[in-house]
Design a protein around this nucleic acid. Sequence first.
DNA 1: ACGGGGATGAGGTACGTACCTCAAAAATCC
DNA 2: GGATTTTTGAGGTACGTACCTCATCCCCGT
Lengths: 344, 344
Amino acid sequence: MRPTTKDLAKAAGVSLATVDRVLNDRTGVREDTVRRVSEAIEKIGFLRNISAANLARSKSYRFLFLLPRSGDQFLAEVLAKISEANSAFGSEAMRAEVAQIHESDPHQIANFLESLNPDTVDGVAIMAPESPQVRDAKLRLEQRGIETVSFISGQIRAGADLAAEDFIGIDNHAAGATAGRLMGRFLDRKPGKVLVIAETMHARDSLERRLGFDEVIGADYPYLTVLPSLETHGEAERTDRILSATFARNPDIAGVYILSSEARVPLQSVTQLTQAGHRLVIAHERTPFTEAALLSRQIDALITQDPGHLVRSALRILRARCDRREVLASQEKIRIEILFAENL
Amino acid sequence: MRPTTKDLAKAAGVSLATVDRVLNDRTGVREDTVRRVSEAIEKIGFLRNISAANLARSKSYRFLFLLPRSGDQFLAEVLAKISEANSAFGSEAMRAEVAQIHESDPHQIANFLESLNPDTVDGVAIMAPESPQVRDAKLRLEQRGIETVSFISGQIRAGADLAAEDFIGIDNHAAGATAGRLMGRFLDRKPGKVLVIAETMHARDSLERRLGFDEVIGADYPYLTVLPSLETHGEAERTDRILSATFARNPDIAGVYILSSEARVPLQSVTQLTQAGHRLVIAHERTPFTEAALLSRQIDALITQDPGHLVRSALRILRARCDRREVLASQEKIRIEILFAENL
DNA sequence: ACGGGGATGAGGTACGTACCTCAAAAATCC
DNA sequence: GGATTTTTGAGGTACGTACCTCATCCCCGT
């Protein structure tokens, strides 16, 4: 049997009340006594029963996902996983809600965060481009007792030694490098051009992917030329236009790297402009669309992160923070997955 | 506030005692009343508070991993993750233990399973080659109220429609196919031979990987010749011998696929016999050794499954079975991961 | 209308922890 | 040494569920 607070009290030679005072950081306990209890905790291997504690406290956790409004399929997957997590974690007294805000306006995001009430929300997972306003708002949230994490994008600095728990998502530089490696190895060893298509290059995520991509190509596949990034702005017409122009000017494009999460618009143009899949295409994120494209060989490889894992990880980390508990780092590491038709 | 049994009783117009009888499948309730309670459950969205239930029952879950004795590094990783899971799930009243048995003797395994006591063990994750004896022993265990799952290897039939919860691990056919795809795309499009090295081809896992590998190579890269599988039996000396002989006879080996989980022995031979990494090497499982080999370019790609995920998945599935709960299928799907130096 | 038996209700205790009150003991101060 | 403050103990209630007992009710067949 696991030792209980009663056992702990006996082992420490104090009463239950004092054990409670020590465990919950209440005042009015001599330092000496605290030490005796702490030693007893070590000695008998006492572990607080969190279920019982939450029951007694009748505590439940309310978390919020702050997501952009943009309607791409990857975001839809994330939303689906959030509602899935809600039913899965339902019996554990956690509830996740969603708020969607225009990502382009840092002020609006900051205002929204400012308006959150610690009585209504225990933690927020924020998916938003980094900006000083949002960073400040996050700090203030934490001061007011609301836990926060950066979700998928918007970390302060990738590759820095920021704790895994502060940012939930992949290292975009590494993701770009992985794309670069695949591109380099899949293409024949002869000169050619590589096209990079993004929704916008203003997002740090896109920049980092591009950087990682270029690094690998530059170092190991110097015979490949990576063209300047084309920006679709999510508009089908514009995409068609600039892609036809680019393909016309560069008949020797051997590979295409679509680095934004919405591959649909650019891929449709690329497919039209290219004969019978003889151009290597690498894209990001698994959605019903990209999955189908992978199976029909319109896409050769997909670099993804698991939205279900992202969501659950965010919830587990927020919850651990609320409980002032450690998380299992290896479980929360979001992997850069590579998908072919074979390992879908 | 989440509805409690009290609310449920009120909503169903019955007493707490009857609610309890219905919820816990006790006898002495009219069918009609059961229906009324069930309807009330739907109506008010009642969800049993599992923490409170386990607390009341003072139930804790004791699970067992039955693993082979063989000391390869992948197994060591699994063992490490089991002890990690023990500390992570410690506060949730689950404990995982390990028993290691010679995998070669189905009788011994069956005997061991037979000896398990439902009072001591709630569930077992079994990693063992399939055999009629073990299959029977599993059935008997389940009859005696001990839950079982196949772990990593030993599933009855891969690709069949067996529920995800019965087998925890990757589809080895797909893993082999993924290796085949990588091999085919990474090699230049010119004739060459591919060497396949296994510890033994008697295991179904190895056979399936080989099958998947051959299928892809045969279909899409007909100019490649896959040599018969070499078996190392885990012996360094023997491996050295047969590999030098094979390389001497086949100077045009362009790629090597090491399909067993212990890549160390064959890789050391391959490295010695090959000049400066101009031979493509694909291996399985991430271990300290293969990781280092990937970084030093002795291995070009690694196909892996996450041991931490395997362990946690096994525990979650066993636990859900004990609680007669559904699992979140998407969380328990073990992915076939592809690793390069870039996405380690 | 009666007995029998199954169905139901009322109420209790327990699980391990949180949080409260009040009294008693111990340490501190002057 | 006495008064004051701080620390500690004892005991209670609560959380949501499980599991137990006993009393009562209703329905059935006769």
